[in-house]
Amino acid sequence: MRVSHSGSGPLPYVSIVVTGRNDGYGGDFVTRFLATLQFNHRELAMRAIPHEFLLVEWAPVPGAPLLADLVESRCPPSVVAGLRAVIVDPAYHEAMTLNPRLVYHEFLAKNVGVRRARGEYVLTTNCDVILGRHVLQRLERRDLEPAVVYRASRWDLRATLNVERLDWACLEDTANLSRPPKRLRPPYFRGSAGDFIALDRATFHGLGGFNEVYRGARFGVDANFLIHALSSGVAIVDIGGPVYHIDHEGSYQTVRAQYAGRESDAHYGDERWPYNDVVYRNRPTWGLSGAPERAAGSRHTYLDFSWDAVPPLVDLAGVVLPAERGSAGGDPARRRG
């Protein structure tokens, strides 16, 4: 196993794993990413919450500046110091995908970060998700419990908001909501789970991260993780407050209707795969833990391509049925005809 946990200083309380690449996703991705990163870092630092940001650049676009480099050139030193970046060779995407239409394997990328996180707790989220005040308070109190998956509901804000001028008054003004927030419901607390899943690192590793066996979609993989967690006896709770997300073009909410009747063409994969009914057993090398690592400075790590690090294209033994369930079962309405 060649996974490194590079980074200096005391271990952070929380590793915040985000993933992205400089491909203009959703419009001005870089601006949204940098503004969100700085806002979250400032609020975490103000509360003296030991943290690190772990940015996984999955299959970066050739010729485009790396997000990690943009952070270094455009953000204050304190933000730069709090960020580690792992840059994953695009060949891994090509070697691992089971769906040629899927342009970005968000959860394979998150697994790379989870596997390399140093924090006592790991929060997987997205580049443009702003941590809410209550979430920050919980982290400040450091009262998260091990073996509990923490979820937060996502409040979508109007796309017209200026992401570079965010403050609490703007975020918490319900007049800025673009749609009514959805309440998370037990037992799974599903709904935009990719935007907030926090869990202690040991349990996250024990569960083997997100599903790497089914690599035909990124849609539903977050919910599938929740089924997997509950099935494995790990509790799921609502952390008690929201995170915020500013609407942008190309998000699932805005493009879903385009794929009505041809769901299998969606760039996020066919949303009808039965992610509520099956779970998985990843290989021990999940998160590309066997990938050759090449350090570039103290904060950048490249994962060079090696077929040895790539899991088998087909691993049917890794598709397993849930061991135990909460009160809810799968959702027959989502099944393909």
């Binding site: 690599r215 035909g216 009914d277 099956v278 079962g329 799968g330």
Partner: peptide, 27 residues
Amino acid sequence: LRVAREALAAIEVKLDILEGAANVLDI
């Protein structure tokens, strides 16, 4: 029924994986 549905779902996922792998290998 639940067990059968889950078994069916597992088969469905496995078929998806096989189909995906076949497509990728074809490409």
